[in-house]
Write a protein that binds this DNA or RNA. Sequence first.
DNA 1: TTGAAAGCGCTACCAA
DNA 2: TTGGTAGCGCTTTCAA
Lengths: 340, 340
Amino acid sequence: MAVTLKDIAKKVGVHPSTVSRVLSGKYDNFNVSEETRKLIFETVKKFNYAPNEMARNLRLQKTQTIGLIIPDILNPFYAGMARSLGIECEKKDYSFIICNTDEIQEKEINFIQMLKRRRVEGLVITPVQESKDHFKELIEENFPFVLASRYFDDFETNAVVTDDYNDVFKAVEYLIKLGHNRIGLIRGRKASSAIQDREKGYKGALAKYNMQIDQDLIVGNGCTIEGGYKATKEILNLPERPTALLVSANVIVVGALEAIFEAGLSVPDDVSVVGFTNMKSTPYLSYPLTSISQPIGQLGKRAFDLLFQHIQSPDEQKYKKIILPSKFSVGKSTQKALGS
Amino acid sequence: MAVTLKDIAKKVGVHPSTVSRVLSGKYDNFNVSEETRKLIFETVKKFNYAPNEMARNLRLQKTQTIGLIIPDILNPFYAGMARSLGIECEKKDYSFIICNTDEIQEKEINFIQMLKRRRVEGLVITPVQESKDHFKELIEENFPFVLASRYFDDFETNAVVTDDYNDVFKAVEYLIKLGHNRIGLIRGRKASSAIQDREKGYKGALAKYNMQIDQDLIVGNGCTIEGGYKATKEILNLPERPTALLVSANVIVVGALEAIFEAGLSVPDDVSVVGFTNMKSTPYLSYPLTSISQPIGQLGKRAFDLLFQHIQSPDEQKYKKIILPSKFSVGKSTQKALGS
DNA sequence: TTGAAAGCGCTACCAA
DNA sequence: TTGGTAGCGCTTTCAA
């Protein structure tokens, strides 16, 4: 068994509380004699003593740990969030536990339970959004949590999201100005507020330019490569093919491009494509994708900031929704519509 | 403050130990009256009681938590490992804490310290491999850990690695049989045992076919896109350009392809390329890369298995090194050498 | 069938 | 400047 504070005390010949005091560092220059301090430090080093955080945690009623609940760490978007959250955690001496929901509502609920039992001090969650009562409970209990990249529009929580409506609005506007008048939307998971906002942004842009909304041009549900592939295939088989596609979630663009190439079409000559990605380069393309580039690092950072603030001052909590703009970067996957 | 076991006991009107006994489930059908049990369960539900794991942990001297120390969760290789480790953890009711070293030795050492203070029960580590004394310490203490994807060849540990020597040997052999006689090696981080083994595999294959080893054809050190880009640029500028490249780590292939296309060359017409990747598709390419496809999921799973076994039976520990073969898949980024 | 008590390792308050 | 003590919330052994 590991050496304990008591062991150190015994070796030095003082009371455990004295060792604790010295090690806490809070009473540095008074309260404990130089002699004793030195001896204690020496002994600590000699026996390679490291405080048992379990015990400290129990005593201090804190764990310096938060939970991160995301759909899938394999998705670079969430990996990026996790990474930046990790950097912030480190600064404040926090650790974090990652849980992948695979967009399964039940898992999310179970993870929250588990993490609460483990007494994490707070949660950063990208919610599945098929149910939401468990979040209302968290609010009632004033349990610190921050939603990341998605939010609920019928009750307030802390949340850090991107400006999905406007991000897509602008991108579609860009396509319209290039002369495209049949613009397809490859959707992500419908349950996600982000995806819903993107669809609204798409419709909003069309509306601004008095263009009709054709439901046939809005396809897909889910955030997988396969889903993107199928949805794109479907839309490309329409009697009147769209000349541009807006792909509304990051990984599905891979499936979309696959379908496009498989159909013998080329980008951007036959189809202009706008995606969501922060990748420098995109599968299938040897040139940059025109894309909506989300501030992933900021998402993680701001989420932690908000969470930390709630943890620090649980009483003066008012919920904040932070909306971060994305960067629209024009690559080579879009061009003027033929005949315009 | 959250409701405690004591609170439940008080509400029910029994002693805390009784509640504990009931909740533990170990004494299910004897020792506690049906009445009391029912009442306790009802009260637990009513007050939404969840046991405090901090306290349990302290009492039971376990945390059901392991640490995962990897270079970078943004690298899909490690994200994949993390994912499969997560799946195994869940099965056994373990959680895990991820730490990213960025290949910085000091961080690794600090993370290990931190995780030990937190009393994680074991570690899965992809070591930086610039120093190794801290691992010898872990061994002395019989602290459970498993190395993943890298190992030390001068002392024994638990480790799960891929068959890097043979994986590359075969790939290079394949290139040789295609008639290539100037094959470049774009190396990853030199300090990594995996990268070293890959270099040995490369040299071994050349040796088998009595081909000279040209040091100019072995370039690069580091596992970044930029590094791959620079190294490839360098090798392409040689007076006598290689006709094939083996890119010995996953993400650097992106930089390598970038450099190739920037030089106005095409794959595979001018340069055949073999990479390490599990991606279905590769940036810059609209066709599959010929690649060494590592069993990432297995890596994570086997690492957990080994670790769990050590945790369960700390005494009968003998170290195991598990070597997993990769799959070599021929894509369209390689072809016969010109004039052969 | 239940209660009492000890203790996991630590911190913090009160006394001396 | 130091020691004593209580207690964080739980489990488990021993007694009743």
